[in-house]
């Protein structure tokens, strides 16, 4: 088993992927990127790094799988319940009071757990019909999974139900899904109005303007250069006085656009755009 990857191999791989597939991983955070690559070597039983390179070079169909494995898709419903409470009790009431319709962007939505959390919360407060939600991810196949809304029963009971309880929802999480064997199927009505789109944050292109962006535990996989660029993109994609929420251990204070935001809640990492 390979236990480490040389920096030079990383360079060769990002070069190949950039040239052949036009995805740029050169500014991904190294520790995590290496770890994902080691995982791929293990899953596909490549005993040398070169075998991965050959496969990437010769089998374009393999790249989709590579893309899915290189991104971290571990997520939860209502992760950080206190953040969701803050959103429900402070942020969203303000937005819905002053707006006919509120646009929300889940940037890097992965398998969609936070999108469902959002939809459930909006529904419980009578906001769902007045919200327009965009959910994007770099990985096409994880978006299909997000749309499908099919999750392991095990995760629902051990994680999501408990998070929902701590959040203090108005009902039971189980009211929003039905169990089918080892999986649960989320109620499709919740997301009937949600637009799922493939979008690469590292690609640098804004696609719309919104009132609220959730981009939690996504930028942690990028280095500071790329974080800086993506924060610019997120800033650009927000209306003035719109909100940006990142993960509980992330911050934008050292980025170029820091002065264009104020901190609304430091504990939950909620920022508000105050100027263009």
């Amino acid at each position: 088993m390979i236990e480490d990857i040389e920096i030079n191999d990383l360079r060769l791989l990002t070069q190949l992927v950039k040239e052949k597939y036009d995805y740029d991983f050169s500014n991904y955070a190294i520790s995590s990127f290496k770890r994902r690559l080691l995982r791929i070597l293990e899953i596909y039983k490549f005993d040398t790094f070169d075998k991965l390179m050959v496969k990437l070079r010769n089998e374009p169909s393999f790249f989709k799988e590579f893309l899915s494995e290189i991104t971290v898709n571990v997520t939860e419903m209502f992760r950080d319940p206190s953040m969701w409470r803050e959103l429900r009790d402070k942020i969203l009431p303000t937005l819905f009071q002053s707006h006919e319709s509120v646009k929300i962007w889940h940037a890097g939505c992965s398998s969609g757990e936070e999108v469902y959390s959002m939809a459930i919360m909006l529904k419980e407060n009578g906001w769902l019909d007045k919200a327009k939600i965009f959910a994007t991810d770099i990985d096409h196949s994880i978006l299909s999974k997000a749309k499908e809304g099919k999750y392991a029963v095990k995760n629902m009971h051990e994680l999501n139900d408990k998070n929902y309880f701590r959040f203090g929802g108005k009902s039971q999480l189980s009211d929003y899904y039905k169990i089918e064997g080892q999986n649960i199927l989320m109620d499709k009505k919740l997301v009937s109005n949600i637009t799922y789109m493939e979008h690469n944050l590292a690609g640098g292109i804004a696609f719309t303007k919104v009132d609220l962006i959730l981009c939690r535990n996504v930028l942690i996989y990028f280095n500071q250069n790329l974080q800086n660029d993506v924060f610019k993109l997120l800033h650009q994609s927000l209306f003035n006085y719109g909100y940006l929420i990142v993960g509980s251990k992330e911050t934008l204070v050292w980025c170029d656009i820091a002065s264009k935001f104020i901190t609304v809640n430091n504990e939950e990492k909620i920022f508000k755009k105050i100027r263009d």
């Binding site: 995590s32 994902r36 571990v74 535990n217 509980s248 251990k249």
Partner: peptide, 20 residues
């Protein structure tokens, strides 16, 4: 931090991850 992996990253800084 709770529920994150903690990595020491090149460049004298930390990185975190929600990896498996």
């Amino acid at each position: 931090p709770a529920n994150y992996h903690l990595y020491v990253e090149l460049g004298n800084q930390f990185a975190i991850s929600t990896d498996e």
